[in-house]
Design a protein around this nucleic acid. Sequence first.
DNA 1: CGAAACGTTAACGTTAACGTAAATGTTGGT
DNA 2: ACCAACATTTACGTTAACGTTAACGTTTCG
Lengths: 144, 144
Amino acid sequence: MSKYKIEEVAKQCGLTKRTLRYYEEIGLLFPAERSEGGYRLYTDKHIERLKQIMSARDVLGFSLQEIQEFISISEQFDHQRQIIRDIVDKQARLEKLSEVEETLLKQLSLIDQKLEKMNAIRRDIYQLFDQVVTAKQKLQTDRE
Amino acid sequence: MSKYKIEEVAKQCGLTKRTLRYYEEIGLLFPAERSEGGYRLYTDKHIERLKQIMSARDVLGFSLQEIQEFISISEQFDHQRQIIRDIVDKQARLEKLSEVEETLLKQLSLIDQKLEKMNAIRRDIYQLFDQVVTAKQKLQTDRE
DNA sequence: CGAAACGTTAACGTTAACGTAAATGTTGGT
DNA sequence: ACCAACATTTACGTTAACGTTAACGTTTCG
């Protein structure tokens, strides 16, 4: 797997080097391996994670703290998969799965609420747009 | 039209009094009329505007500055309607309308981009959710 | 092997979006 | 007329999310 130095990653993601270090500092981005001389060596996993972060930040308008919680769930999922595999008792396994399911359902409903509100805003703007187009057409037919 | 004192408005909108004054201070919320003794007297227009602001802030994740620009367009529209009515020259009227149309189109595409990204996030989460549900079903059928 | 380009930590600076406190004035009911 | 509840301005405080600078080590390339 290829490794990238900090500037490369920053450019690819449209972030600054400071931001990458900051995200690591607050525990939002898991630390990268270091080179002999102490340089950070990022992997594709880091880039993938950064895209998730930016997506949540820009699209959902989440604070970095909220992103922590939000992302930690999909991360926990990978983690939980190991745990779940290790659970021998079927009843306990079911409960663990149900727990994860519930969390995901909450996130889905949260996103659905946002989607609905965004669509409402879109409708409002479209209505304005429609009025303008109609007004233009009227002007142009009047002209003939 | 009824007038409201600041606390009433704050409660209705789920904001603090400080926030209302702050929004006025930075020019985001147009100033309210004052009572004899200097109390702010808000109208339904203010409440309507505040809902727009909160919507843009919470749903679109906009900064207050971005909201300024964003909202000023629908406000300009009302304003422009007067201007447009006053324009006698049909050619100039058409141009003004086209100008507004273009701005609205930009906003629509901006929102559409956000909607698309949000749907992508939703799909990701749903996929996880689906995996969990499948795992649960498998566990339960195995049981019989 | 030497310099330019890139990296590191540490620490202080900045901006947005309010919170909070103090000192003071206003309203509404009894 | 008075008091409790609400309002005002002014000004300093706070937090998140970085920006910036300094002092210094590392890589790379001719």
